[in-house]
Design a protein around this nucleic acid. Structure first.
Lengths: 255, 255
DNA sequence: TAGTGGTCTAGACCACCCC
DNA sequence: GGGTGGTCTAGACCACTAG
């Protein structure tokens, strides 16, 4: 039970600007993802890890907390800390989920831009984005594809700093909308509020997605908030029925 | 900027078995929910709160972390800790979400039990629950209602301890399936893996939910894991298109 | 009873924001 | 420069699990 830690790993967690607990978390994550620690196998005790890496137990605990939140580990009082089953580890949600989800499933994510334009917000859009009606917003509408086949339509309305604009070309070059907003305008998403329901395909949906009018679609609406919790995007996403939106739910409430 | 804390609140956080940081979190939560701290308003500094309640700063930080994970607060390095906007605060996901979601939206959640029976697992069920085919499982199928109207069909398959059974009557008396499993069998859910997509209503769905055959439904499949991360339930839920599944997504990954 | 995770402390220093 | 949150430490004691 002593020293279950990888003997080959270097002890030194390089002295960079990265906090110690994040370096440890990264190391533990690597060990898990490489398969050298299997599902439901125990980690060494927090005290052992602390000694092994010459850090305080509290720092070890911070790393474990982080990985627990991400679904990679779980701890049980009095028993130990264990590697989560792979089914849990593979499940996660990100804000820019489409590309990541698709790649994780082994597909190639793509997009076909339908329009990128500046327009005054109507009442509905202004309402969800908490801005004045007629204030200018950017609209980005595109088809999302997996291995070349259309699987969804994204229609996003963005609140940009005054005067800021970008073109379809910028979006193509940047690859990711969120990356573009962050790099160019310093607009970083902090969290998103999503609402999922089902809806029947209308004529446009049907023709763009290659399904029959009336076919069931998954409708996902999202309000994205910036770090200061100001709405920065409203996005409506419709997916064909073969597309699956996956998420992990933890019952933090009652514990 | 000094002493923004509620002057009327008692300083003593009762000495019960409840950890200090949870008591503080509960107190802060109460202040927020009562409206005495509005959206985006700052909390006193961690150091001030620590002095005010005669606890260490680390304990204050634990309470703040907890509420941050739950979407009630957000912190910014160098600026302070703030109350999250109500739109974020009201958004959360629980495992036993149907009743809570419905009540939060001001509706009355109800159920009509279709069947509660013991049956041998078929290949598909045994596969997702990671048990042997033909091992006995309990099946609970019911209609979920909001204000008396049917909005969804839940079809759950449960892995119980050997010999354990319950009846429809037990479920009615207990009120909640999870409560019944916890109280009676010590089976507590730790987390769930959910997969959402859309599907067309079949004849049975249509008649039970009062929609047309082919109408779009929201399909939510869930595998519920126990504290030891063993599958304890597979549940298939279908909802009419007016039902909304809401969730909060945070971008923990890149930070 | 020994070992594990869970809570709590008192202090230190760093990184960041804003005046 | 002064205040904020972020990281880290070294030690203590409690609560739970399991042989």
């Amino acid at each position: 039970m002593v020293d279950l830690l990888d003997e080959t790993g270097d002890l030194e967690l390089a002295q960079s600007g990265v906090p110690l607990y994040r370096q440890l978390a990264a190391k533990l994550r690597a060990e898990i993802e490489s398969g050298s620690r299997g599902s439901n196998e125990p980690l060494p005790s927090e005290r052992d890890i602390a000694v092994r890496y010459a850090m305080s137990r509290d720092t070890v605990r911070k790393a474990v907390r982080l990985l627990e939140e991400q679904g990679l580990l779980y701890s049980e009082h009095g028993r130990g800390t264990f590697v989560a089953p792979s089914s849990v580890r593979e499940m996660s949600r990100f804000l820019d989920s489409f590309s990541q989800d698709t790649e994780k499933r082994g597909g190639v994510a793509g997009q076909a831009i339908i329009l990128v334009e500046q327009m005054p917000a109507n009442l509905a859009i202004a309402g969800v984005l908490k801005i004045e009606p007629r204030q200018m917003v950017m609209r980005v509408k595109r088809i999302r594809t997996v291995d070349g086949s259309p699987v969804g339509i994204h229609d996003a309305y963005l609140v940009l700093p005054p005067g800021a604009v970008f073109t379809a070309d910028d979006l193509v070059r940047s690859g990711s909308l969120y990356k573009l907003l962050g790099d160019r305008f310093g607009l970083n998403a902090a969290e998103g509020l999503e609402s999922l329901s089902s809806v029947a395909a209308n004529a446009e949906d049907a023709s763009r997605l290659g399904v029959a009018v009336g076919a069931p679609l998954l409708l996902c609406e999202r309000i994205t908030l910036s770090e200061r919790r100001q709405p920065m995007e409203y996005c409506e996403m419709k997916y064909v029925s073969s597309y699956r939106y996956t998420t992990r739910v933890n019952k933090f409430s009652q514990k």
